[in-house]
Amino acid sequence: MAHKNRETETLSKAVARIQAGVLAITCGLICGLGLFAMTAWLLVKGGSQVGQHLQLLGNYFIGYSVSWLGSVVGLIYGSLFGGLIGWGIGRVYNWVVTLRQGPEA
């Protein structure tokens, strides 16, 4: 009984660590593909002023525009930027968890 209670307690108290690399890839894929899809969607829809707001991202992602070439550039930028965000979240999270719980066994 005592063993089982300890086991249940261990499981319910286990704190997750985040694999920063995995989160970076996940966020990178979401952002990269997301920006590619949004750009492509606006291009397919067409119109007189295609993606006037989205193209403001060009302020940050040099070379990006709402064009087919831009969508590929956006895919690369989005992936890098998303990856960086994911990696950052993972690292900061793990750092705080380590501060609070001690190093991972």
């Binding site: 499981l11 319910s12 108290k13 286990a14 704190v15 997750a16 660590r17 965000i85 950052g88 979240i89 993972g90 900061v92 999270y93 793990n94 750092w95 705080v96 968890v97 609070r100 719980q101």
Partner: peptide
């Protein structure tokens, strides 16, 4: 099972998102 049912630390997740969002 242990990995899937391990809890996220809300404070750590809050700090992580806070740091990243503010820097961005």
């Amino acid at each position: 099972i242990e990995a899937a049912f391990a809890k996220l630390d809300p404070l750590a997740m809050g700090v992580a998102l806070g740091v990243v969002a503010s820097l961005v």
